[in-house]
Write a protein that binds this DNA or RNA. Structure first.
Lengths: 150, 150
DNA sequence: TGTCAAATTATAATTATTTTAATTTATAAC
DNA sequence: GTTATAAATTAAAATAATTATAATTTGACA
């Protein structure tokens, strides 16, 4: 964990930003909840447990900054809140998501399934792809088996 | 155009909703701007030109209703506003989007490029796919040629 | 150590959307 | 056709998410 913070610190410094205590606290929360898809408010409340003096606006600014540096990805599942995910180390692409419409759980797919599709888009629509967002809405494994009970 | 309105009317009736004048005016605006990706506010302003007495809340409720009936798709490009797209007639799937990060233009791909990917997701993650959202962020053809000028 | 820029805080403002309560409209029973 | 009933609409207020503002603090460095 510490070395990932070190890395992020260097990334910030390379763009002449500093890793302030508030920013560090925010990053730590993100690291501790890598599996979740936290909203800004979620992050704020978690950071507040450790550093009660932090302000919500700072969390927003920090997340925005981390998003610009591609340390986190800002996603929107259409529920009106932005969520922030740490990019996996070395991950080039934005990972995909499986959102269950029954229980609301969100699972991540880290594999890049879009290689071929991107090639098609680039050649057929002459569109230079920089990034992508892919979300599937459906029913997760768990809910499928629950449905059997009925 | 009229027969598409007829169809939507029937769809509403089948769920015991009515096609009120306000709803009809809203649908007409959507039909007239099929290529665009209008926000609720955009729709409201356009509807207002023809039916100045309509309220914003009604537009929201109508769009929400149409979205439930799968007449329109509600999308979010991450800019903080929800946008509403009429589903193409008979279109089973949610179409894909190409968002240009330079000029902000949005292009639609109606072809479904995800057939294979969905199969993989269904078998490998045991996730029953109902719908998907796929957006590419990148540089559109026009902006690519502009960049050459520099 | 004093100075300057960057960062933070608390608060207010803004934007998008939803809710509420009152009113209108349409549907259907009589 | 009136009257009762439910659905839909309006205008206004409320809420939720996010951003901007102004004052203050922090930290790097001359």
């Amino acid at each position: 964990m510490e070395n990932r913070i070190e890395k992020i610190k260097k990334q910030l410094h390379s763009q002449s930003y500093k890793l302030t205590p508030q920013r560090e606290a925010t990053v730590r929360v993100l690291l501790e909840h890598e599996e979740d898809h936290l909203s800004a408010e979620d992050v704020y409340l978690l950071v507040k447990e450790k550093s009660p003096e932090i302000g919500l606006a700072t969390v927003y600014r920090t997340l925005e900054l981390l998003s610009e540096l591609k340390v986190v990805d800002k996603i929107n599942f259409g529920d009106g809140v932005s969520r922030y995910d740490l990019r996996k180390e070395g991950a080039e692409h934005f990972h995909h998501h499986l959102v269950c419409v029954e229980c609301g759980s969100v699972k991540e797919i880290e594999e890049d399934l879009l290689g071929d599709v991107e090639k098609i888009v680039e050649s057929q629509w002459e569109f230079k792809v920089k990034d992508h967002r892919l979300t599937f809405h459906g029913i997760c494994k768990k809910c499928q088996s629950h449905d059997d009970d009925k």
